[in-house]
């Protein structure tokens, strides 16, 4: 006896025919077969009318479809209205949430925190200007810093990065150029043209925690209590800000100007002093490096250069684990695989 199909008003042969005639799933079709696609889209003459007119797919669940929760609804609304403008960045400048919340400030990325502002970054043109000043004109870093009001460390970093960029360009290494263009459009930026606000403070002085306490120092009324005295009062090792200035040559220049040295001459002297300080720094570095090398005796064979240095094997500290100690010592367990020990390097040279 053939298997029976319940609730079916068409005979089995008819079902088989329908199956053969039904459109194939797209994955089974060859990619370009316009003829086959055309035939499947037209209704076949042998398909019974009542089949196509039958009730739509039976729903097995009797429960109502889940409604959207309130946050979900609000989220949809946000994407349609207030959040719409953020989907695609248009224009030439930053676009933060604060612009929607009508706070009057366009550079606040987090509406609740007005203390954090998105400050301008150096544009690609500005970076090129700095690189040219240092590498082509040969200006000292401090002078470039003072001229463009950019921190000395940033000037050095810009030059370092630009050098890498130029090297990569020469090597034809892959770079993220469309990304860089897009990011530059999204950020506030400075071209260092000089007619805008100074880029950043260049004479930062770190606030020492010793100087954050309130101190009562009795002094005579006639005494001149200067910054130096104040530093001394906070602690013997506390330096006055005069010694912590990043570009002390600038203070000297200002002092010269107060002492009626012409502006042009003062600036010239400033340039000479910064150049001198840079030279001194380089000489000091060289001296240290030379001294380090002098401790080592070099034996140059054809293949290797052996560098031999004298060390004191006894200087291993109280527990035999001193940082500078050299070599493996017997009797001291080597515990660098132990759990909970900090194994991440602290510096990369």
């Amino acid at each position: 006896m053939p298997p029976r199909i319940r609730n079916s008003n068409c005979p089995p042969q008819q079902l088989l025919l329908n199956y053969l005639d039904a459109p194939l799933p797209s994955s089974l079709l060859p990619v370009h077969r316009p003829a086959a696609v055309a035939s499947s889209s037209t209704p076949s003459p042998c398909r019974p009318q009542q089949q196509s007119a039958a009730a739509p797919q039976r729903c097995f669940s009797t429960s109502q479809p889940r409604e959207m929760t309130k946050p979900q609804r609000e989220f949809r609304q946000f994407l349609k209205h207030a959040g719409k403008q953020f989907e695609k960045h248009v224009g030439n400048g930053p676009m933060y949430l604060s612009s929607v919340k009508s706070m009057g400030a366009d550079d606040v990325p987090f509406p609740s925190n007005k203390m954090f502002r998105s400050e301008p970054v150096l544009s690609s043109r500005a970076r090129q200007i700095i690189w040219e000043a240092v590498m082509l004109k040969g200006m000292p870093l401090k002078a470039v810093s003072a001229q463009y009001q950019v921190d000395v460390r940033r000037v050095a970093a810009v030059v370092r990065l630009m050098e890498i960029e130029k090297r990569m360009e020469k090597e034809n290494a892959p770079m993220a150029i469309p990304y860089a263009l897009a990011v530059e459009k999204m950020l506030p930026r400075s071209n260092l043209t000089g007619d805008e606000q100074p880029f950043e403070p260049i004479n930062d002085v770190h606030v020492h925690s010793f100087t954050m306490q309130q101190l009562f120092v009795p002094v005579s009324e006639s005494r001149e209590f200067t910054r130096k005295d104040a530093a001394k009062a906070f602690g013997d090792h506390i330096l006055p800000p005069d010694h912590k200035m990043r570009i002390p040559e600038l203070v000297k220049m200002e002092r010269d100007i107060l002492n009626d040295v012409p502006q042009a001459q003062a600036e010239k002297d400033f340039l000479a002093r910064t150049r001198q300080s840079e030279r001194e720094f380089a000489e000091k570095e060289k001296y240290v490096a030379d001294k380090r090398d002098a401790r080592k005796s070099k034996v140059d064979t054809e293949r290797f250069e052996f560098r031999i240095e004298k060390i004191n094997s006894e200087a291993v500290g109280k527990k035999g684990r001193a940082r500078g100690a050299v070599g493996w010592r017997y009797g001291v367990p080597f515990n660098d695989r132990q759990r909970g020990l900090y194994k991440i390097p602290t510096s990369v040279g």
Partner: peptide, 26 residues
């Protein structure tokens, strides 16, 4: 062609303690 992902600009800022060169991603 490369385009920035949606909603990127609302989060795009670079704090001052970093100096970024986006071209070389360094």
């Amino acid at each position: 062609p490369w385009r920035p992902r949606p909603y990127m600009s609302a989060f795009a800022f670079i704090p001052r303690y970093l100096e970024v060169n986006p071209k070389i991603c360094a």
